[in-house]
Amino acid sequence: MSEDLELSTRTLGEAGPRVAFVHGLFGQGRNWTTIARRLADPTEAGPGHRVTLVDLPNHGHSPWTDRVDYVDMAELLAGLLASWGEPVTLVGHSMGGKVAMQLALRHPELLRALVVVDISPSTYPETGGRTDDPYEEASPFAAFIAAMQAIDLDALATREDADAALRAAVPSDMVRGFLLQSLVRDGSSGWRWRLNLATLGRDLGVLRGFPEPPPGAVFPGPVLWIAGADSTYVLPEDRARMDELFPAVRLVRVKNAGHWVHSEAPEVFTEAVRRFLDGVEQRHGLAQVEA
């Protein structure tokens, strides 16, 4: 992966502490727009934040690459954050959460704080197996990719036709709508996926993993871990590793929410992040005074 690759971004808010969001597999920065707008707006508790939404490689408007690698993505993101010249609070969901964790453990100086959304620093099985729960969220992504690749884009007439074609493999209306955000008109010539489906499908095993951090690596800053109570991505047995790598972690489980917790419970999610950010800024301000 080239170090010269430039990630596509969009920023909401012109002032305030910096916050960056990185999406999960099949996502893009725009998925966070509503939450970003809320965090960018000032409140009675203080000024708003300058929120940057990042498209990771092979997603959204960012370039495609010939492989998928968490350390590569973390280094690319680190270069972007370093260019801003100030510490950032980084929020990452699922795949983006693993990228964010890798960055925090390799470049802790770039971050003021970290928010990890429904993912753990662990390797996930190809099909089920983490629990005895018949609802296993880690397994359907290969089927999602196959279903998207099976759509004949040259013959596709409408987005509704694509939705119907995905329904068997992706029964959730919410998830289908999420996937279809990456299906776009290619000028007047037809449709295309903004997702690099071939590379993502080939390297799906890489995405299920979590590269071993550098020896002794720890992120000492404040960390908020938000998990869906109905999700199997963050299990009790993951907590020891979370505490080892991120000793200042606080775990919050959101009731009636699964893996896409920020979409299923947006108000609860946004409030949890806002309160965390307020606390981070209060601690930062106190540290500056004491210095």
Rank of each mutant, 00 (worst) to 15 (best):
D55Q: 11
L7R: 09
R283V: 10
V206A: 07
V273H: 01
R106W: 02
L5H: 05
T34L: 14
D278K: 02
E44K: 11
D163C: 04
L180E: 00
V51I: 13
L197V: 08
I151Y: 00
R159L: 15
L286E: 14
T43Y: 02
A78M: 07
L251K: 02
D238S: 10
Q149P: 08
G48A: 10
A146E: 13
A227Q: 10
M95N: 10
T34P: 01
D163L: 03
L25M: 13
A150W: 00
T199H: 00
V99D: 06
R241G: 00
V68R: 09
L110G: 07
Q149V: 05
H49W: 15
P222Y: 04
P213E: 03
L53F: 10
L81E: 03
G209N: 02
H49M: 09
S172W: 02
G187I: 11
A155P: 01
R30L: 14
A272E: 15
A265G: 02
L277G: 07
W260E: 01
P236Q: 06
D173F: 06
Q282E: 14
P215G: 01
L179S: 07
A113H: 04
G24K: 09
A45M: 06
P42N: 10
P121T: 06
R30C: 12
I145C: 02
D186Y: 06
G24H: 09
K98F: 11
G216L: 11
W260K: 00
A143F: 01
N256A: 15
S139T: 13
G96Y: 12
L251D: 00
R38P: 04
S263G: 13
K255W: 00
L105V: 12
A217D: 08
G79P: 08
S188K: 11
F141Q: 14
A104F: 12
R167E: 13
F178W: 05
A78F: 06
V170P: 01
A36C: 11
L204G: 05
L153H: 02
D163V: 01
A257T: 09
L207V: 15
A138Q: 14
P236C: 05
Y233R: 08
L56N: 05
A240V: 12
L207G: 00
G216H: 03
L156Q: 04
F219E: 03
G13R: 06
H107V: 09
R38L: 14
N58W: 05
S263I: 00
R37D: 07
D161Q: 12
S2K: 10
R10Q: 14
R253S: 15
D278W: 07
L195M: 12
V261T: 12
V99L: 04
R130W: 11
V71S: 03
F144H: 14
L12K: 02
G216M: 08
P236G: 06
A36W: 06
P215M: 04
G85R: 10
G216F: 12
R185M: 10
L39A: 10
G258R: 13
A217W: 08
E212V: 11
A265E: 07
E290Q: 13
A291K: 04
T33N: 02
S139R: 13
A272K: 09
L235E: 11
P134A: 08
A198Y: 04
R10A: 14
R130N: 06
H259N: 06
R167M: 09
D186L: 07
L25A: 11
G16P: 08
